[in-house]
């Protein structure tokens, strides 16, 4: 589903990604862990072209992200194409980023109406059932600031699902939450993986979630993949010294 080969990305002189190679298969849940500044969020943002990569190849579903290849030449995609591709990838942010001037229902129905040109009634019916799925059927008319962090993040997940994405990206979805609210968001994500078989890439610090739900675990540091494998094996028996150091601090 996602294939990265030697992906490089710099911000000015700072090289954040220094050659990422990995592959996410359909219906796989991949968790990415690593210290802050290791480039894991940047890599995630490259997948739906919120950041442009400088070198290497990154493709989703067999198509290059942000470019079209003809012969040996890469052509930049026009904005319209980039938007279309983004609409097929759901993203959930650390800070939720719900639209504060819209109710929960409007937040979810907005993109289907505006981007997919779905009728308002269909979009709202779908939004209601999504709110029900994330356990917030009674919050249809609530504005984001009337919701707890956990509830906001569940609305954000529903908002991403409304576009019926083939891939979901989670950028530290529970890092901004009070500890007692983390569970409800992880429960929704677990259900996504188990019930819908959603392909997911999750940047997280929740090792428990990675162990139970993840099909693979990637440890990143200094802009490279240090170690990857089955979550239980990596967590229980890390092969690299750097992984061992990191895990000893977070476990």
């Amino acid at each position: 589903m996602v294939k990265a080969e030697a992906v490089h990305k710099s911000f000015g002189r700072l090289e954040v990604l220094r050659g990422i190679d990995l592959e996410v298969y359909p219906k796989e849940v991949m968790c990415i862990i690593g210290p802050s500044g290791s480039g894991k969020s940047t890599f995630l943002r490259c997948i739906n072209h919120l950041e442009k990569i400088d070198a290497g190849r990154l493709s989703v579903d067999g198509e290059l992200v942000g470019y079209r290849e003809r012969g040996n030449q890469l052509y930049e995609l026009p904005d319209r194409e980039i938007c279309r591709k983004r609409s097929e990838i759901g993203m959930v942010f650390q800070r939720f980023n719900l639209f504060p001037h819209m109710t929960a229902l409007e937040n979810i129905a907005e993109a289907p109406i505006q981007v997919k040109k779905m009728s308002r009634s269909t979009a709202e019916a779908q939004a209601r059932s999504l709110l029900e799925r994330v356990g917030l059927a009674d919050k249809v008319k609530a504005y984001p600031n009337q919701l707890s962090g956990g509830q906001q993040q569940r609305v954000a997940i529903a908002r991403a699902l409304a576009m019926e994405p083939k891939l979901m990206l989670f950028d530290e979805p529970t890092s901004a939450l009070d500890p007692e609210l983390v569970g409800e968001v992880l429960d929704v994500m677990r259900a996504l993986a188990n019930d819908l078989g959603m392909t997911m890439v999750v940047v997280t610090h929740e090792m428990g979630f990675a162990r139970e739900v993840g099909d693979s675990l990637v440890f990143m540091d200094g802009g490279v993949v240090v170690e990857a494998g089955k979550p239980r094996e990596v967590l229980a028996n890390p092969q690299h010294e750097r992984t061992r150091q990191f895990l000893s601090k977070v476990l």
């Binding site: 919120l50 938007c83 942010f93 980023n97 719900l98 639209f99 993109a111 981007v115 908002r159 991403a160």
Partner: peptide, 22 residues
């Protein structure tokens, strides 16, 4: 906040749509 633009872009909204609606 820039996060609003990013969230809207991530949903596939075009620049003008992000401006007008969000």
């Amino acid at each position: 906040e820039h996060g609003q633009t990013e969230a809207a872009q991530a949903l596939g909204m075009t620049r003008l749509l992000v401006m007008r609606r969000i």
